[in-house]
Design a protein around this nucleic acid. Sequence first.
DNA 1: ATGAAAGCGCTAACAC
DNA 2: GTGTTAGCGCTTTCAT
Lengths: 347, 347
Amino acid sequence: MKTTTIKDIARALNMSTSTVSRALRDSYEINPATKKLILDYAEKMHYSPNPIALSLKESRSKSIGVIVPEIANNFFSQTINGIEAVAAEYGYHVVIFQSHESYEKEVINTQHLVSRRVDGLLVSLSSLTTDTRHFEELVERGLPVVFFDRIPKNIRTFKIIADNFLGSYQATEHLLEMGCRKIAHVTSPSWLSITKERLGGYQQALEKFGVPFQENYIKYCEHGGMVTDEIETAVQQLLDLPAPPDAIFTASDRITTGCMSYLRRQKLRIPEDIALVGFTNIAVADLLDPPLTAVTQPAFEMGQLATELLLSLIQNPEQEITNEIQCLKTTLTVRASSVQQATWRPS
Amino acid sequence: MKTTTIKDIARALNMSTSTVSRALRDSYEINPATKKLILDYAEKMHYSPNPIALSLKESRSKSIGVIVPEIANNFFSQTINGIEAVAAEYGYHVVIFQSHESYEKEVINTQHLVSRRVDGLLVSLSSLTTDTRHFEELVERGLPVVFFDRIPKNIRTFKIIADNFLGSYQATEHLLEMGCRKIAHVTSPSWLSITKERLGGYQQALEKFGVPFQENYIKYCEHGGMVTDEIETAVQQLLDLPAPPDAIFTASDRITTGCMSYLRRQKLRIPEDIALVGFTNIAVADLLDPPLTAVTQPAFEMGQLATELLLSLIQNPEQEITNEIQCLKTTLTVRASSVQQATWRPS
DNA sequence: ATGAAAGCGCTAACAC
DNA sequence: GTGTTAGCGCTTTCAT
C-alpha cells in the first residue's frame, strides 16, 4: 500500500523535508502560512508518520513483548486485557507469544522478541521452566523485564503476583471450617513459584487446625494441566489412597476443570463425596454443577500494574528496584462445591 | 540495551559493512575464510539483524494486525491461537487489538494498525459496526484485509466463516425433534452477518417442521452480550410472553452464559421448564448445570485459514479473489440442557 | 573478493 | 524561517 512520506509532501510543495518535518511537529520556527499549507496537504494525502523510520532513528520500537503459557485461559486473557489497556494508553503496542507450557518454546519466544527489538518484556514462566538463564542474561544486558504470576527466583527486577499464600490459606481454612480433614491439593509443578506459595498457605492452614500435613495428598501436574492425562492420573491416585481425600483444592483453571470433569465421570458427588475448591479465574464458576468455590486473582489489575512498572523501567532503566515483589489480594467466593447443603446458608 | 550491528562487526574486523552483510547472508562472493571470521565474531557478539532497519528498507513490517471484539472469549482466543500458529510459521508477528464491541474503538484500532504499517489486517467486526467504510477504503488503497466470523457485505476480499446457517439449522432441528415448538432465539444485533445467517438456519428448520415463525421469539442484543442487562431484559421479555418459549437458542458465548445464569436465578429448570442450546465455544460446556448442548465453531482452523489467505494476499496482492467466502463446518454436541431425562439416553 | 555509496523515512544539528 | 546534511541498520548496485 503506497503511503505518503514527508519527502512526497516536500516535493509536491516545493520545500525541503526538514521544513515539512518541522511543520508536522508544529515547530514554532515555521511560518504559520507555510505550516497551514503543509498541514492541509498532509491531511489531504492521509499522511501518517512511519513508525518504523522513527523506531530506527530513536532505536526503540515502542512495543513490548509478552510471554504467557497460553492465551485461551481465563486468567491470562484477563491479564492481557490489563496489559493492553496500559500499553495503549502510553502509545505502546503489545506483541504476544505463547509458551504452551514448553521451556523450549519459551526460549525461542524470548529470542524472537529480543530480535524484534521490543523495548521490554512481560513474562509469566512456563510450567516446564526450571532454568531462567535466558531471562537473567537479558536483564544483565539491560533489557527491562517484569515478571508476573509465575516468577523466577534470583532475578533482580519487578515481579507482580497475587497473594497466593493467603488465597490458598483462606481456601484451605474454608474447607477445614466445613469439616474437611483429608484435603488433597492438585497443583502445578513443584518448582514454580505459585506452587510453593500456594502449598505454603495450604500447609499453614492445616497447621492452624492441627491437621497433620500428608505428602501423599499433594499431586503435581508437570504440564500445569495442559495434558488431561496428568490430571486424571493424579485424581485417580488420590481416590485410590487407603484414606481418600474428602476435599480437593486445585491450583489452576485447567487443573480445576480437568479435576471436576474427572470426578463427575467417576460418579462422585461434589461436595457430598468430595468437596472442591479451585484457584481459578474461570468466568462461569457459578454455572457449573455444582457452582464452584473459587479463589480468583485480580488478573486485569495484575496486568495493569506489571505494565506500568515495565514502562517505568523502560523510561528509566537505571532506577533502583525497591518493592521488588508486589502482591495483590485474591478473593475467595464460596459456592456449593465446598458446602454441604445441610450446613450451609448463603450469607 | 546495546546490540551489535553490522557496522560494529565491520569496524572490529576492519572490513566494510557490505562484506559483513554479504557474509551474514552467506553470499557466494565472499571468501570462505573471511566468511568464517565474520560469522564467528557475529555469533560471539550475539549479532541479530535489526528487523526495524530491514522493515524500513523493504517497506514491509512482517507483522499483521488483528481486530477482534475481545480476547477474553473462548471463540476469539481460539481463533487467535490459529492465527499465531500460521503467522509464526511464516515469520510474521501478530498485533492484536480489541474493539470491545465498539464501533469507535474499531475505527481507532484500524487507524493505529495502519499507521503501524502492518502488512495486512484480520478482522471480525464489532457488534456495533454498521458502517464499514473504514475498511473499504483500506481495501481500495490496496491493503490486504481478510475478514472472519463477522464479515461485511460489499467488500471484495476473502472472508472465512463457520457454516452458521447449517449450524443453526441443526440446533433448531434438534430442539424440534426433542418436541419443542416454541423456540426463542436470543442473538447478536440484526445487522451482523452471523445474526442473519443463524436466523436463516433457525427459520428454515422451523419451516421444515411446519412451525410458524414468530417475530416476538427473536431477541437481539445490541452489544452482543457485553452488557449483561440486555441479555436479562431479553430473556425476561420472552418469559413474559403470553406463550413463553419452551426452548431458547442462544447465539454467542456471552449471550449463552448470561442467559443460563438468568434462567437459573429465575429458578427455571433446564431443560424441564425450558431447553437451552448455545452457539458457543465455551470450554466447559459439559461441566455446566445442566451440561450444555452446543454448536461449536472450528475456531482454531478459522484462524489458520484466514491467516493463510491473508499471507497469500500479502505476497500477491493482485491475485484474483475466487471463493470469496469460505465456510467451515460447525459441530453440534447434544447434552442434557436440551434433552428431557425421560426421553434421552446417551449414545 | 571486497569496498563505496545510495536509499528506505525521519529528525536534528548546523548552516544561512 | 528555511535548507542542507548526516545518521539510525541494512541491502544492493556499481565500482575496483
